[in-house]
Amino acid sequence: METRRDFLRTAVVAAATATLGEVALGAASKIPSPDRRGILCDLTACIGCRSCEAACRKEHGLSSVSSLSELGRSNVPERRRPSPDALTVVNEYKHPNGAGSPTFVKVQCMHCDYPACESACIVGAISKKESGPVLWDTDKCIGCRYCMVACPFQIPSFQYDTALKPDIVKCDFCVHRTEKGGVPACVEICPVEALTYGRRSALIEIARKRIENYPDRYRDHVYGEFEAGGTSYLYLAKTDFKELEFPSLKREPMPGTSESIQHGIFAYFVPPISLYSLLGGLMWINKNRQKAEEETTE
């Protein structure tokens, strides 16, 4: 008896593990291409000139302000975020003790390897491309803004003031340029080459090498290498990224838990169909019992 019960228990555990394994695979099964591109953003080099902002606006025809001189160098102290008018912004973070030079942080879509927005989108309007970018499809989007809820970096922006066909707006990695072998507009304009566009794996190597060669200049942390499962944008900085208001994220992809649950509930439609049959069975039994009762009372 004892052995039989043990056997049963083992079987149940094995079955459960197999199911869970399958479920977990659901989330992580889409492994991004090893050849995907990224951008390394070296914050120790950035001088906060905001040329990238100007170039981006010009490239995407976003606003009349297209030249650097019009933007000025007055970097704003408040937390500016990308908006429908600017897909990327540069924010200034004062040196902790006030004496040293400030650090400038370029903010834009991180182009996650496992994007929360892609997983969240109700109609699949957001997709991670093989070459790295996370792109938004205007033909599918219904404007529900769940991508904005899901994004851990608070990136997607919405045209709240457009009544008809408002867009979700975010950095598109300048795919129209990179498809033709070019580099994104912000990377091209950067006067100090704080931005480097290339294969993500190569960029990580370079970042690690820089940290090794200049331990005084860089903190030993490539932000985006592992955060939220990895991002296409990678950052190097001298200070702790927390001081620069980068969110502290775990290594697990953002969609992990929710996708596991979703796939668990819908694993080959087994749970819903089982529930359906169970309820059907109950209904049948109860009906028959009542009939029997009625017959006996009669």
């Binding site: 989330a27 997983s119 989108c121 109700i122 109609v123 699949g124 309007a125 769940y146 979703q262």
Partner: peptide
Amino acid sequence: LMWNGNSALFE
């Protein structure tokens, strides 16, 4: 018409 099985909102 446009399905995304990963999305809780879709479900």
